[in-house]
């Protein structure tokens, strides 16, 4: 239950008289710099880096790409790739590339005599052992009756790993909960399904130990469900959480002071350079 919802209702009787209006505020303006949107992964594909200029808040023009930067991605094994500008701030490698777990990757952007730089480790992760569907026959309060999926995977390192999941139903990424972040504190990816015995799901249901997070979706028979499990760094996890928080704020006195999500890029650039290890699994919902 989001606190914001509580506030909404608590103030609802007041809100009968409350009103919103568009205001034009003479905002202070920060210095212009660049924003970077770059994610490289263990998938084999051309690496892409988007570099754009920051804009004044009220500037409603479409985003302006930075076209004259020198963009290099290197790793600690001595590999160096220079990315080429394609259009409107998009830079890419000519050939497909994939990250190797255990290596640290560095992005260097030279622009207007400033070097913007970020490094990230590509983390190890095991394959997903089990990805199965199961049926919850009765709505139990926490969850509606229906078909759900769960996964089991082992954790490579004893601590410090953070995950992000994307879930697809018949090749369509699910909205709303499509991106799920979870801090894995229990040393096992299947944290929320810890008590599920893949060999006897029915027993788990009988014992009421199923809580099908992190995939709280109700599927239909015949659906093909695919998950992408991104093993990410703690800093990136915190960046995404803060980004989500910022987008959820409504400016009331009950909000904490706003702050910029902490980028890993040096010299005051915004955005993030992430290096992720992706594992996939899929299943078809059957009776």
């Amino acid at each position: 239950m989001k606190l914001n919802k509580i506030i909404l209702v608590l103030t609802a009787f007041i809100a009968l008289t409350a009103c919103e209006q568009l205001v034009q505020i003479d905002l202070p303006q920060g210095a212009q710099t660049i924003a970077v949107d770059a994610e490289i992964s263990t998938d084999l594909r051309p690496w892409k880096v988007f570099i754009t200029n920051t804009q004044a808040y009220y500037n409603q023009d479409t985003v302006a790409g930075v076209e004259d930067a020198i963009v290099v991605i290197s790793d600690d094994d001595g590999n160096v790739d220079t990315l080429e500008h394609v259009e409107n701030g998009e830079y890419r490698t000519i050939n497909s590339r994939q990250c190797v777990p255990g290596r640290t990757y560095t992005l260097d952007i030279q622009h207007n005599n400033t070097l913007f730089s970020a490094s990230e480790l590509c983390r190890f992760q095991y394959d997903i052992d089990t990805f199965l569907s199961f049926f919850i026959p009765e709505t139990n309060g926490f969850i509606q009756k229906g078909y759900y999926v769960f996964e089991v995977a082992n954790e490579y390192e004893p601590d410090g790993d953070y995950y992000l999941w994307k879930i697809y139903r018949n090749d369509t990424m699910l909205d709303g909960f499509g991106l799920i972040l979870d801090e894995d504190q229990n040393r096992e990816v299947s944290f929320f399904n810890l008590n599920i015995d893949p060999n006897d799901i029915e027993k788990s249901i009988r014992e009421d130990s199923i809580s099908p997070r992190p995939f709280p979706f109700n599927f239909k028979l015949g659906d093909t469900v695919e998950i992408e499990q991104f093993c990410i760094n703690k800093k990136y996890y915190e960046f995404l959480i803060e980004l989500q928080n910022q987008q959820n704020r409504s400016g009331t006195p009950f909000d904490p002071p706003p702050a910029n999500p902490k980028s890993n890029i040096s010299n005051g650039a915004f955005g993030y350079f992430s290096v992720v290890n992706i594992k996939r699994a899929s299943t078809i919902i059957l009776e």
Partner: peptide, 10 residues
């Protein structure tokens, strides 16, 4: 603390 600018990401 209002925004002093904006950037494009994701």
């Amino acid at each position: 603390s209002p925004p002093v600018g904006k950037y494009f990401y994701q």
